[in-house]
């Protein structure tokens, strides 16, 4: 049974439809990745899943419950957390405060300090910088903080929007090491990536999105992989005749 089931979701900015009926599924415990060229609607889909954008039609069922159109905080409370594109840490707040913000809606306040300790064990760099303003961190550190902040809500499903964006290759390696670690520890992950090679290395299943629609899906290692990677970077529209 699928953990997250997206059916015919249409999301529009005014009259322009960025998602033109997207359907896909994310299996529990797996890493699923969404590839596609710029402007395909990947971030729009993530924002719709997280409740920041309201879909015009379609359904989003998470763990058997309809979440389409719900408020973002209600979706977080149900166990879906998004690590947004460009990280969006709170720059003037300390690293520790950023992590507390991630735990904002949790009812079990007593377990928060323990979770913060676990985050620090996973991200030792954040522990060193706990009292520092988040805006002073490097790009890679901010990405780790954004992941830690999302994990502080104890999500069952972690959505990640372009975690490698603008990072140096070594840092990208580290981010993907963390993604595989989280997966190994049982977190279900739905990942949007521009870096198709990296994403296909860690994912169990992938979707290709082009111009607001899912145009291909499969498992990494399949014959179609090269074609998918090419289209993920260029888009099928630019395919030479």
């Amino acid at each position: 049974m699928s953990f997250l089931e997206v059916r015919d979701v249409v999301t529009a900015y005014g009259k322009i439809e960025a998602l033109k009926g997207v359907s896909l599924e994310v299996a529990e415990g797996a890493i699923t990745c969404l590839l596609g060229p710029n402007g395909a609607g990947k971030t729009t889909l993530m924002m719709t899943l997280a409740g920041i954008l309201r879909p015009k039609q379609g359904s989003i069922v998470f763990a058997g419950e309809e979440i389409a159109g719900r408020a973002p905080h209600a979706i977080v409370a149900r166990g879906v957390a998004l690590v947004p594109e460009n990280r969006l840490v709170f720059p003037a707040m300390t690293v520790l405060e950023n992590m507390h913000a991630g735990a904002y809606q949790r009812g079990d306040k007593k377990t928060v300090p323990g979770d913060i300790e676990r985050m620090f064990a996973r991200f030792p760099r954040l522990k060193e910088r706990a009292a520092q303003q988040a805006g002073t961190l490097s790009g890679g550190e901010q990405q780790m903080l954004a992941v830690a902040r999302a994990l502080m809500s104890r999500p069952k499903l972690l959505l990640m929007d372009e975690p490698s964006l603008g990072l140096a290759p070594l840092v990208v390696e580290e981010i993907f090491r963390i993604v595989t670690e989280l997966h190994r520890d049982g977190t279900t992950i739905f990942l949007v990536e521009q870096n198709a090679h990296m994403a296909l290395r860690v994912a169990q299943h992938f979707y290709l999105m082009e111009q607001g629609k899912v145009t291909f899906s499969g498992d990494p290692g399949s014959l179609a992989e090269d074609e998918v990677i090419r289209r993920a970077y260029l888009g099928s529209a630019q395919r030479p005749a």
Partner: peptide
């Protein structure tokens, strides 16, 4: 946006 995503 991030505040809403953090569950506020």
């Amino acid at each position: 946006a991030a505040a809403a995503l953090a569950g506020i």
